[in-house]
Amino acid sequence: MQPAAANTGPGWPASIFDPAGPYAGSITTLSWLLLAMAAGVFLVVLVALWVALFGKHRLQKRLGGTRTIWIGGIIFPVIVLSGLLVYGLSLTRNLAEPVPANAMRVRITGEMWWWRVAYLDARGQPVNIDANELHIPVGQPVVLELESSDVIHSFWVPQLSGKLDMIPGRRNILPIQADRPGTYGGQCAEYCGGPHALMGFVVIAHEPAQYHAIMAARRTPRQQVAGRGEQLFRSTGCAACHRIAGTDANGIAGPDLSHVGSRSSLGAGILPNNRGTLIGWIGDSQSIKPGNRMPAYKMLPAQDLAAIATYLEAQK
């Protein structure tokens, strides 16, 4: 029997020591430096402890003298910590620099316990609405406008940037950048109630040409799929909470499902998106993500769940 496999969302677990761009890069460098320095100081303390316990009497006397206290307890920390402060601030300066005015902008709004995603045009108007997943082109900074509509959340995709709080009534700006294509996992980093630990996020970085193709495809009006799944989506009340672009489903209490068929994850980054997880989520999301704000639909027969899933799979 093979070891326990975890069928987690794409991009998980996200590595905090493998930066994929300049913003995460400077933070990782600083982290390694801090770790190395802490290890060095720890070693010195261990040696001092050894000397104090088992060392030669002459060494012990020196260690206990006022000079050691002055040098080791005051001068050394002041010099090292001041140097570190200056170096650390200059190293991570790129995170605080003004962002380029023509950079791509996306507004991400924290919700209990998922994320709204709105791609913005040059005037700041939403041109494409999505949820829980963000597509970006590689090699350029992308500016995120972070907001919250309920409590404080914190946006964190460790391989692309630092973490920044999403505060109700405020708009915080966070630049992110990926220099290589890939799938990068994220996680809400500020406790926001019940299923906070299951509030993940996925960023997918593409070559620019591919990125533009995806966005262009989203702008072309889609063929509407009629049928049992579409009927059930309305008659069972899904449309009251979920929007599907181009249909009369325009609920906003839950994630936008206009592109759920091409989403790589479900449940806010916590599951891969496939037949089983889609039907399983719709039928009883409460057994997967207890306390989330979507009701379970245990009363729906298997065929109805399957029909709704087929309808949603077509929403690319």
Binding site: N274, L278, I288
Partner: peptide
Amino acid sequence: IERVGCAACHQIPGIAWPQGAS
């Protein structure tokens, strides 16, 4: 089992996550 997501509805030995219960 991983590709089609059976674990979204079943607890399955050897699969740590998810462990759905419908």
